[in-house]
Simulated scan of single mutants.
Amino acid sequence: MTTFQSLTTSQKARAALHRDVRAICTEACHFLGMEITKPAMEIIAELVYKKLEVYGTDLEAFAKHAKRATVNSDDVKLLVRRNPSLKTHLNGISCNSATKEKRRKTIPMVAKPDTKTNKEDQNKEGEGLEEMAVDQTIDLTFD
């Protein structure tokens, strides 16, 4: 087993991020005609990692606040609301995408049956509700 395979998922993500940040720093410095030290690259990688952790928790909070288990494009747009150029870029991407997410229909809440209504009406309402409930599943797990 190699050293990389023995790492946890979180450690693998951090190592991959450090590798990519080093590659980007090296390439950018090459084009700019500058040099960068390894400790400087490591500091940049750690800052990026911590910022991504904050972004992740914010995105989870936005989705949870909207009572969803999945982060969607609206959450990302909310996250970048203070960066006008990035927000414009993301709006352009989302407007150009051909597949738009359709909102799910919510199951109407059925009031407690009135003692005045007859049993046939109650059975008809219950059948329609059961059919709708079978078609929809909701995943409420957060990692």
Rank of each mutant, 00 (worst) to 15 (best):
D75F: 03
D20N: 06
K38A: 15
A63L: 03
E101A: 12
I44S: 01
A63V: 03
L78G: 01
D139A: 11
N72D: 13
A16N: 13
K124D: 11
T9N: 14
H65R: 06
A40T: 12
K12Y: 03
A45L: 01
K51I: 05
A69P: 01
A66R: 07
T115S: 15
R103E: 15
A16G: 06
G56C: 10
F4Q: 07
P108C: 09
Y55W: 09
T141S: 14
E46K: 01
P113F: 07
T70P: 00
G92T: 08
K124I: 13
L47K: 11
M41K: 02
Y55K: 02
N96R: 13
E53W: 02
K67V: 06
R104T: 11
T3M: 10
T9E: 14
R82D: 14
K100L: 13
R19C: 06
V21G: 00
P39Y: 06
A69K: 03
T9F: 10
A98C: 07
L59R: 00
A40C: 13
G56S: 12
T2W: 04
V54L: 11
E130G: 02
I43M: 11
E125N: 05
G128C: 10
I93C: 11
Q136N: 12
I93E: 06
V71W: 00
F31D: 15
T57I: 14
H89F: 12
N91L: 15
S85G: 04
R22F: 13
V21L: 01
D75R: 01
Q136E: 15
E53A: 12
Q122K: 09
N91I: 13
G128T: 07
A23M: 10
L86Y: 01
P113H: 10
D135E: 15
Y55F: 15
D114Y: 02
L129T: 01
I107L: 14
A23H: 01
L140H: 08
K87W: 01
A111M: 11
V134A: 10
M34E: 15
Y55L: 14
I36P: 00
E42G: 03
L52I: 10
L78P: 00
R82A: 12
N72I: 04
P84W: 06
I43D: 08
S73Q: 03
A111H: 06
D58C: 04
S94F: 08
Q5M: 09
V21Y: 00
F31S: 13
T9Q: 14
T70L: 05
T57D: 12
G33Q: 07
E131N: 12
E42I: 04
K100H: 09
S94T: 14
G92N: 13
P113W: 05
I93W: 02
K51G: 08
Y49S: 02
I107P: 01
A16K: 08
A40K: 03
E127V: 10
R104F: 06
F142M: 09
V110F: 04
T115W: 04
K87I: 04
T88C: 04
M34H: 13
D75K: 02
P84I: 12
I138T: 10
E60D: 14
